[in-house]
């Protein structure tokens, strides 16, 4: 018999392409499920048989270490077999289209595809091309849903919000919002859970259109610092910055870097987050990144539980959509 709280709810998503597609109940169910998986990673035998006999294909058409390792370990802890596939060493360099590539891989018998691609919408294209479940591990500037989920999970853990209700929390996202899929997933996830989201960055990297998402927008960091419960520092993504939109590194660091001085202006127990990899001394000072307020490594740990939950749920979804 199911618990009372879950009587009316059933997870119905075959794919996880973005947090824009989920409602608050979906997000809360997923994060609650992740809590059940967190404990598996603390055992001496870090394995449960939930996905035994299933195959998870890790399709990374863009470089990644942490997300890829996290998905790989998460699949392993569920006893799935993992196929690792990287774009640079594959037939995509021989001119094969993305949908052909994924159809071929699916033909080998794959149950879940994890897709990372530098083009926005790539995960949705893959989902349209195959019958198996698709998890978006970051597509261009669109979304990085598992990062948004693990950030929410970490915030709940740090602030004691066991029911994943973020009403009354103020969360700042600082940096290159325009190019950031992490920011988009965070905005969708956090606002749905009830948090107030403040975006901060240079005007060139933070278009006013984000106001439509219900966020406050600031171009200076200092004035909002005392209000914040959580501050999420985005990485300066040099690989995406080809224009003159970005000020000089020194200017950016002076205006938007999280320093010990700025920490003094914030609440004592403010939670400092960063999706990694960090540019020490640029967007965040070493003393802050390694300090007591930092949840950066906790985010990485939680990433595993959240990704295990995502794989577990999408592959077992009652396919009412699509």
């Amino acid at each position: 018999m199911a618990a009372k709280s879950s009587d009316d709810y059933a997870w119905s998503h075959k794919h996880l392409l973005g947090l824009a597609d989920l409602d608050a109940a979906d997000i809360r169910f997923l994060l609650t499920t992740a809590r059940g998986f967190g404990e598996v990673s603390t055992r001496s035998v870090k394995k449960v048989p939930a996905l035994r006999g299933k195959v998870v294909a890790n399709l990374f058409f863009e470089p990644s270490t942490r997300t890829r390792s996290s998905f790989h370990l998460a699949a392993g802890r569920l006893s799935a077999d993992v196929l690792d596939f990287s774009g640079s060493s594959s037939s995509t360099t021989k001119g094969e289209s993305l949908s052909d590539t994924v159809r071929n891989i699916e033909a080998m018998g794959v149950d879940v595809m994890v897709v990372r691609h530098n083009q926005s919408g790539a995960a949705a294209l893959v989902a349209d091309s195959v019958d198996c479940s698709v998890l978006n591990a970051g597509d261009g500037q669109h979304e990085h849903p598992t990062q948004g989920l693990l950030d929410a999970y970490t915030i709940a853990q740090r602030t004691g919000r066991d029911g994943f209700d973020f009403t009354g929390l103020t969360v700042a996202i600082v940096g290159d919002i325009a190019h950031s899929r992490v920011a988009r997933s965070n905005i969708h996830g956090l606002t749905k859970l009830g948090a107030k989201v403040i975006l901060i960055g240079p005007p060139t990297l933070l278009p006013a259109t984000f106001k439509a998402a219900g966020c406050e927008i600031y171009h200076t960091l200092d004035e909002v610092l005392p209000r914040l419960d959580v501050i999420n520092m985005l990485r300066v993504q040099f690989e995406r910055l080809t224009s003159q939109a970005f000020p000089s590194v020194r200017e950016y660091s002076a205006l938007y870097g999280l320093t010990t001085e700025r920490m003094k202006k914030m609440k004592k127990n403010v939670v400092v987050m960063h999706p990694g990899p960090i540019n020490r001394g640029l967007e965040i000072e070493s003393a802050v990144a390694d300090g007591p307020n930092s949840a950066i490594l906790q985010q990485v740990t939680n990433g595993l539980a959240v990704r295990m939950a995502c794989m577990f749920l999408v592959q077992g979804a009652q396919h009412t959509e699509n």
């Binding site: 199911a2 059933a10 997870w11 059940g36 998986f37 577990f312 077992g316």
Partner: peptide, 9 residues
């Protein structure tokens, strides 16, 4: 049917 709630061990 639907994925059951996973609780902690």
């Amino acid at each position: 049917g639907p994925q059951p709630v996973v609780r902690t061990t």
